[in-house]
Design a protein around this nucleic acid. Structure first.
Lengths: 186, 186
DNA sequence: GTCTATATCGAGATAGAC
DNA sequence: GTCTATCTCGATATAGAC
């Protein structure tokens, strides 16, 4: 793996674990086994490197979501696939995590990938719900946009509860609870 | 207000805005208009001061929640009161925010107030739901514990989406969506 | 209780040699 | 492309005077 590549991957890992504010160039260099000069040759600074790392994060999250959401099956099954997907719950969401970082939110260029990703995800889930409605899968028809926001929020909020409790239990309760509420509409 | 008091309040504000990792003793002192020696006289260090601030945060959040959840009305109305309560959505939750802070989660003593608070909140909401069931307010009876986890997660996740979008819209969608799903059970 | 001095270390970068 | 040197600040305290 190239030095530039190692720097990006190390940054992804550290951003996930420690956030933007808590991640130093020095720590990135050590984890990537790259020198100071090397880092500043490939990237203009911490923010530039973070942007590259974030772009890769959101791309990956999007692929993971698309994989389950485009699977065959009913809307409920596909959303179930999203909610029950294998996750490293106690580590949290590498993308949602950044929403708490003041320097990320204060920077339009660093925040943009987050906004774009969650916007896409909500729309994608709303689309799945709309398809389900059109196929007559719901007896009570849930509002697609609002319900999609619920699904995504439950996952992001589930991470918060799980980390606070140092246990995956609240996350599991939240996703199965959301699934049960939705299933009652079928 | 006493110096000690000003230090705690300044810390609360900075923890909310910048998190634990992003908050320095120096910044706290400046905001509190207190000297270095003053801070280290009243508190043993950053962690000690943060603990005092966090304890005050969780106490306040609990009072705010109890106020709406103990109000008269049906279970749906009381939960609606919790979900629709006035919030500074773009600033996020002062307690949930800390769940993303690696140094908070790594410290049992700093994490404990978060765990305790969310544990209490989930139980309190589950209790409200159970009361509603006993009064026959639900035609389809939702699981209290799982549904309570959904309610709390939706709020915490709603903050994440709102901050990512720099807009309160996703938060509002999520809470109204959750309310609609729950209302369909009545 | 509060102040100033001092100390150590890391953050975040720039400069120029190789 | 990578390395080492250097720079300026801030983080996080401790010490001791007042």
């Amino acid at each position: 793996m190239s030095t530039s590549e190692r720097l990006i991957e190390s940054t992804r890992q550290l951003l996930w674990e420690r956030g933007y504010v808590g991640t130093s160039p020095k720590a990135i260099q050590q984890l990537a086994d790259a020198g100071q000069g090397s880092m500043y040759h490939h990237f203009s600074g911490k923010a530039d490197l973070a942007l590259a790392a974030i772009r890769r994060d959101v791309e990956q999250q999007r692929e993971l979501a698309e994989e389950v959401l485009s699977a065959p099956g009913t809307a409920l099954e596909r959303i179930s696939g999203y909610l029950l997907r294998e996750r490293d719950v106690l580590r949290g969401c590498p993308v949602g995590r950044l929403a708490q970082d003041p320097d990320i939110i204060a920077s339009p260029v660093l925040r943009e990938p987050l906004e774009e990703t969650f916007h896409w995800l909500r729309n994608r889930i709303a689309q799945v719900l709309t398809e389900g409605r059109q196929r007559g899968e719901f007896t009570r028809e849930p509002d697609p946009a609002a319900t999609a926001a619920v699904i995504v929020s439950v996952v992001q909020g589930g991470y918060v509860l799980a980390r606070s409790a140092d246990s995956t239990e609240p996350f599991d309760q939240a996703v199965t609870g959301a699934l049960a509420l939705l299933a009652a509409h079928c």
